[in-house]
Structure formats: C-alpha cells, structure tokens
Amino acid sequence: MYKRDIYTVLENKKIAKDVFLMVLEGDTQYITAPGQFINILVEGFYLRRPISICDWDDKTITIIYKVVGKGTEAMAEMTAGKKLDILTGLGNGFTAQEGSTKPLVIGGGVGAPPMYGVAKHLIEKGAKPTVILGFTSKDDVFYEEEFKALGCDVYVTTNDGSYGTKGFVTDVIKTLEGYDYFYTCGPLPMLKAIAGATECSGQLSFEERMGCGFGGCMGCSCKTLTGNKRICTEGPVLVKEEIIW
C-alpha cells in the first residue's frame, strides 16, 4: 500500500560531498520494508523525485540523497519547517531471507542509505550482518559510524584508496568467508560485479528513471526471468536468480 500526504522537514544537512540527510515528519504507516522509497514533489519540477528510505520510525522518515541535478539542488536548499507533498510506501523493499544468519549488506554511494534500514531490520531478526560500503573517494564517505553503532562489522572501500580499502566492494567480498546471503543497492556495474563475485543468493535494489513511481505508467519496466517487472512496484528489489544482466 502507498499513500500521499504532507510531510514537514525537521532537518536537512550536508553529510558528505554533495550528499544530504533529510528527516521528514509525518505518517509512516505505509512503509513496511527497508529498501522501499518515497516520491517527493519538489516545487517547480513536474515529476516527483524518488528517494530510497534510509530509516523510519512511528513519525519520521530519514532519507539521504545526492545533489545530481536541479531538483535535488532545490531539495538541498530546504530548511526545517518546509512542507512537502510525498508518496510513501512505494516499492517492494528487501525481505529478510529465512535461515540466513551471516549476510553481507553492501551499499555503493547513495545506494548505501537503504542498506542502513536493511542492516537494522536484519539485526532485529537475529542475523549478524557484515557491512561493506563503497565510495569514490574520502569526501564521499558517510554513515560508517552509524552502521558501526548498529553493532555491525563495517568495511569501507574507496576507488582511489583515499579512505579504507582501495578498490571496489568486491575486493572486500573476496577476502570474506562464511557469509550465507547478500543484500545490496548501488550503481549497476557494482550490482553486476557482486552477483558475479558471490556464490550465494541475494537481493539487489535497482534504479530506473520513473514517471509515477506507483505502477501507473510502465516507465520503469525491466525484463526478468520471472516476467516483466516495474522497478517502482515489483521492484526495486530483485532476487539474484531472476535478473537478466
């Protein structure tokens, strides 16, 4: 289920290069799984901005977004008290895999935020996730401490080696043993590399340009081995075995 409502910005602050954290207050009852997203109407722009949910509680939603264009630029300027028209509870989100106790939780760039909600959810379910966060460079790194505060082992990689392990998240995966499942969100080449670097199954969250975000326009369809899926509705999370790369 999804719903439109008006939300109030409680906080909006820069946490890394071009990356902002926004806390919104309002009805959160339609959010049912980590990895779901919200769709924000930004004044002066026609289509909504789909942003994944980082964390939520009874009355607040935390999102982390990157300024990539004029719409997110306008979002970065917003201050506390600003009212926003938002659709919540969109997408399928991640599902805790039965029987998995030692999963990998992997986030790349602004694919990292939804993985925070995933890690939190998995810990509540009794699993002990190992977190790998991949970024381009030191200035891009965020949320390492927050993941650690959940009690997870956290590995950070940067492509240029300016922070953490030099290279890609798959360079860390190669060094790990005993994991039994994975959950990930990030750029397409990273998702593909992870699927190739792991023998276990996993869930991967995909991105696509969307029209509506709730299944009305068929703008974000993809083919899978289990049929055509809309990234906004039957996705954004797909299971490794159904993906056609």
């Binding site: 722009f45 026609y46 289509l47 719409g71 696509e208 340009r209 969307m210 029209g211 326009c217 068929m218 703008g219 974000c220 369809s221 993809c222």
Partner: peptide, 11 residues
C-alpha cells in the same frame, strides 16, 4: 529504458 524524461511543466 530509460523511457522517461522530465521537461519544464511536462514529461
């Protein structure tokens, strides 16, 4: 895909 692009006051 991509099948969608935004425009000023439209898509």
């Amino acid at each position: 895909t991509p099948r969608i692009a935004e425009t000023p006051m439209g898509m």
